[in-house]
């Protein structure tokens, strides 16, 4: 049977935009104050953010707060995200959630954590990165690997170089100019030196599906077990409560059975083309 969602309503809670931080040309982080507190989100879960009169879109939590204050990092890619990314402080939005299965942090104590992000995929990982930085995950060690299109498209670049420096960030871009200090190439080029003892590694990976597949294969080629790799899938989520049907992936409703899956769960599903 499908997982039972903790939140089942289609009725949003109103939220006020408290702060807007521009991250990239097309990307902002909204800090929201919810008019009624939700359940405290687990890192990796998502909310349905509603731009009244425009539409609703699934956006992961980039800051989980306490359920009454949350952050969402949003890229302008369509009508609804355009409305969200152009909000001014004080704007009113709707929010439903938290939805879905987040990162399984219970697997981390005693392990070497690799946090591997591609592009905007760093946003749902941000709460994990912050916990890793604060040392609250119980890991034996942690490293952050981030891939982006170019240096100026790298999300949270200031935080990476300051607050997150203890995670020895390995940054790679597809192309760069000569002021860039990180790697150039796909994010996988940094994996070899990051893994260490593969038996101790737990990898959590978020980015475009192709990037996650390439990373997971590379990790497995280097003897990391498939059940020690977590990925977060993007599908068309409209209801968040396993009712509208859009986000199905084989037997799964990605909105409640995901978005986070272990690679041993995800791989056979993603192996079927256009599923």
């Amino acid at each position: 049977m499908r997982s039972e969602p903790a939140v089942t309503t289609l009725v949003p809670t109103m939220a006020t935009v408290e702060a807007v931080r521009r991250e990239l040309d097309d990307t902002v982080t909204l800090s929201l104050a919810l008019s009624e507190p939700s359940l405290t989100p687990t890192p990796g879960q998502f909310a349905m953010l509603w731009a009244p009169g425009v539409g609703e879109v699934a956006i992961s939590y980039s800051g989980v707060g306490d359920g009454s204050r949350v952050d969402h990092t949003i890229r302008d890619v369509g009508a609804t995200t355009r409305a969200l990314t152009t909000c001014e402080p004080g704007a009113e939005l709707g929010s439903r959630g938290p939805f879905g299965r987040g990162w399984d942090l219970s697997r981390l104590p005693g392990r070497r954590l690799l946090i591997i992000a591609g592009g905007l995929g760093l946003a749902p990982l941000r709460p994990v990165v912050e916990a890793a930085t604060a040392g609250t995950l119980g890991t034996s060690s942690a490293q952050l690997l981030v891939g982006a299109r170019s240096p100026d498209a790298m999300l949270y670049r200031d935080e990476i170089s300051t607050h997150w420096a203890s995670l020895e960030p390995q940054l790679t871009v597809d192309h760069a100019t000569d002021t860039w200090k990180g790697g150039v190439g796909p994010v996988t080029i940094a994996l070899g030196s990051a893994i260490g003892d593969p038996a101790t590694v737990e990898a959590i990976v978020c980015g475009p599906e192709i990037m996650m597949r390439v990373v997971a294969r590379e990790l497995m080629d280097r003897d990391v077990a498939p059940d020690a790799i977590q990925v977060s899938l993007e599908r068309n989520m409209q209801c968040g409560v396993a009712r509208c049907g859009h986000c199905q992936l084989g037997p799964l409703f990605t909105c409640v059975d995901g978005p986070v899956l272990r690679w041993d769960e995800a791989e056979p599903l993603l192996a079927v083309r256009e599923r």
Partner: peptide, 10 residues
């Protein structure tokens, strides 16, 4: 068949 979409109207 039960699938639905949700659409905003102003």
């Amino acid at each position: 068949c039960f699938c639905t979409s949700i659409s905003d109207q102003t």
